[in-house]
Nucleic acid binder design. Structure first.
Lengths: 203, 203
DNA sequence: GTCTATATTCTGATAGAC
DNA sequence: GTCTATCAGAATATAGAC
């Protein structure tokens, strides 16, 4: 029932409890999902009392929102790199789809928090803007294939949705998209993205 | 804080508490998601004590698993009808994708429970087999486009994943896939399914 | 089959000492 | 900034009366 983390006998924590809590929370979400996350267990894992986190975060949701924000930033960084590997918009979208799946596999906690924690974005301005920056990075790519704004949005949405579905199936081991199938699933995502993008280009 | 449901003053519930509990649970999941579901609140809504459900269900998870099973059965029924509307396999997959999105929109609780409740399928044999029957219904359709078993599986997986992603985005209002956009989202799903299926047919 | 009552456990959050 | 102590609330599940 107890965590395997050593408790500091008293008083002072090492320099950066704030970040230690964020790390512990991420680990906890990895194991139990966003809904299994509790401040109490996070405190235990960081080796502090349950009251300590309240000096660093207003409440449970605020800590979670901070993780979600960093999740969107990590996404933006990964997708920016994926897209930078080619000049061809179809290949850029394929790369994005692949990176999306990889992100979900390598950072399952961040992935779950961004999409499945039910955070109220109107309460956390930074979270909302971090999410919008991800879209802002990708829309110009879609726009190269679909100059009309609505069409570009539709294209990006469908590519992202396809990648999202594969990422979820991979994560849940559904449909036999099991454990070590990351590379295969990335390829499926890339192939699907190409099919969607080309249908548009050909139309 | 109290439920709007009238309590029966004492003793006997009407004939079918078991089904009344299932209905109340479904309603509760619709409002709060699978993780917000509790036996206690379900009991309150059905107008019985918190102990009553244990005469009908072994525990909380068993009730949830029963709902999930009925969710898979509803899926199979809907998808069977969708697929029956055409002889053309590409159109059948497009119809399936559309029905998938519609199911998620019209039965959000069942949708969430089947995919997001984290049920242990090894504990509930009927749940596992109900899920397999959905796949068994659709695989022959994919097989008409991809005679090789692995290819058919891959095709179905990618179509289902695309529909799943759109369904999730619709449900969460993400990417501006907001409230009344059901018909549009169904069309997106159908179009994406066609793009995936045709890439295969053309290859 | 349903109730009342209870044991147990966990949570978020606050007050006040150090 | 961290601790101890505590409150208030809620949940799962069981025992035993009716």
């Amino acid at each position: 029932m107890n965590s395997p983390v050593k408790r500091r006998p008293t008083g002072q924590h090492h320099g950066d409890l704030r970040n230690a809590l964020l790390r512990a929370a991420l680990e906890l979400v990895t194991e139990r999902g966003p809904h299994g996350f509790t401040l109490a267990e996070t405190s235990r894992r960081a080796g502090v009392s349950v009251a300590a986190p309240y000096k660093h975060f207003a409440d449970r949701e605020t800590l979670l929102a901070e993780l979600a924000t960093s999740g969107y930033r990590e996404q933006r960084s990964r997708f920016a790199e994926a897209v930078s590997g080619s000049d061809e918009p179809v290949e850029q979208l394929a790369s994005f789809a692949s990176a999306y799946v990889r992100f979900a596999a390598e950072e399952p906690a961040l992935f779950d928090i961004t999409f499945n924690a039910g955070l109220d974005k109107s309460r956390f301005a930074e979270l909302a803007s971090a999410g919008e920056e991800v879209a802002a990075l990708l829309l110009p790519v879609a726009r190269e294939l679909a100059p009309e704004a609505d069409d570009a949005f539709d294209l990006l949405l469908r590519v992202a949705a396809a990648a999202h579905g594969l990422a979820v199936f991979l994560r849940q081991g559904l449909f036999g998209v099991g454990g070590g199938a990351l590379t295969e699933t990335e390829e499926k995502a890339a192939r699907t993205a190409r099919a969607i993008a080309r249908e548009r280009a050909g139309a």
